[in-house]
Each structure stands twice: as structure tokens, then as C-alpha cells.
């Protein structure tokens, strides 16, 4: 069923609405009203053309409706709202950027190695290889530690050297790539 009369009516109403962002919403609302009314008239026995005509008549004057609706969607206030919303988002992003990121990164950038007293650091091996995704170290008593997380650019291991006789000394280190192949190895 071609709804040319309905379209014409909607167009007439919308021509008075200056704020573009509400047009779709208004069109949807008025159109669904008219379609329900057309159904109603057709249930009463009218043919579709007559039903459409009567439904549009019942809506009233498109110009009057358009002008009244336009008053409720003042373009100045509408734009102001859009702009303030936009500004809000902009400031939120700005805040995240200037305050949030430094704050968050400060949480992570605190390299734990710096908080460990120097005398407690037993070994520090820097591996400048991005391919290394996992490090496994073995102590002289056979204990192993694995680490897949970075602290900044370091894999960090901590263990206590509590028993001087038995040891728990660092023995060897293995570096694995993403396929779990050993690509670096060193012994003490």
C-alpha cells in the first residue's frame, strides 16, 4: 500500500522542525499513530484509501502540529545540549588522558625491583629480546620458578635465600618464545 498521503503529512510536519536530530523520532511516532488509526478504520470496513484519508484528517493540521512540536525542540537549546554533551565527553576524555593515564600508569610503573633493598637482589639479568614470553629459572636445589608477566620490561623473581648451607642459589635460566621453545639459556 503506497502511503503517499501519510508521507506528505509527515513531511509537512517535519518541515517546521528546525532541530534535525529529533526528526526521525517525531516521524516514527506520528507515523505509527497514523498506521494504527488506518488499521482501526479498515476494521470498521473502510477501504485503505479512505482509511488513510480519514486517519490523516483526524491528526489535524500538519503545520500547527509542526510549529507546536518545533517549540518543544528548540534548536538553540537542542544544539546547546548536544554541544554540552559533546563537551562533557571531550572533558572526560581529556581527564582520562591527563589525569587517568598517569594515575593508572603510576600504579604499574612502580617497578617492584626498585622497592627491594639492593642487598636482597641476588641476580639481575637483563634480556633485551621481545620474543621472550616466558622465563623459567632453576635453583641449585631443583626448585623452579616461571614468570610470564612483565614488570615494566623485567621478569621479576623473588625468593628467599634463607638457608646458607643448603643454598637455594640461582642455577640456570631459560627463556621461552610464544611457541614455548627455549630460545635463550644461561647457567651460573
Amino acid at each position: 500500500m503506497p502511503l503517499t498521503k501519510v508521507d506528505k503529512f509527515l513531511e509537512d510536519v517535519l518541515s517546521h522542525i528546525k532541530f534535525p536530530f529529533v526528526k526521525d523520532d517525531i516521524s516514527f511516532e506520528l507515523e505509527s499513530h497514523i498506521l494504527e488509526k488506518i488499521d482501526y478504520y479498515m476494521e470498521q470496513g473502510y477501504d485503505s484509501e479512505k482509511a488513510e484519508e480519514l486517519s490523516i484528517r483526524d491528526m489535524g493540521d500538519a503545520k500547527e502540529i509542526g510549529i507546536l512540536l518545533n517549540k518543544q525542540h528548540n534548536p538553540f537549546l537542542g544544539w546547546l545540549l548536544k554541544i554540552t554533551n559533546g563537551m562533557m565527553i571531550f572533558f572526560i576524555i581529556l581527564n582520562i588522558y591527563f589525569a587517568g593515564i598517569p594515575f593508572i600508569s603510576s600504579l604499574f610503573s612502580k617497578n617492584p625491583i626498585n622497592t627491594i633493598p639492593k642487598e636482597d637482589i641476588v641476580y639481575k639479568i637483563d634480556i633485551n629480546d621481545d620474543k621472550i614470553k616466558k622465563i623459567q629459572i632453576t635453583l641449585n636445589n631443583g626448585e623452579t620458578f616461571t614468570e610470564t608477566e612483565f614488570y615494566e620490561d623485567l621478569f621479576l623473581f623473588a625468593w628467599e635465600v634463607d638457608n646458607e648451607e643448603q643454598g637455594r642459589y640461582f642455577n640456570n635460566i631459560k627463556g621461552y618464545d610464544s611457541n614455548n621453545n627455549v630460545i635463550f639459556q644461561d647457567e651460573y
Binding site: 510536519v13 500538519a62 512540536l69 517549540k71
Partner: peptide, 10 residues
């Protein structure tokens, strides 16, 4: 007039 309901609702 049915259409005038909408300005009121808005």
C-alpha cells in the same frame, strides 16, 4: 486533533 497530543507529550 490527534496530532496535537504529541506537542503536549513532548
Amino acid at each position: 486533533k490527534e496530532g496535537t497530543l504529541y506537542p503536549i507529550l513532548h
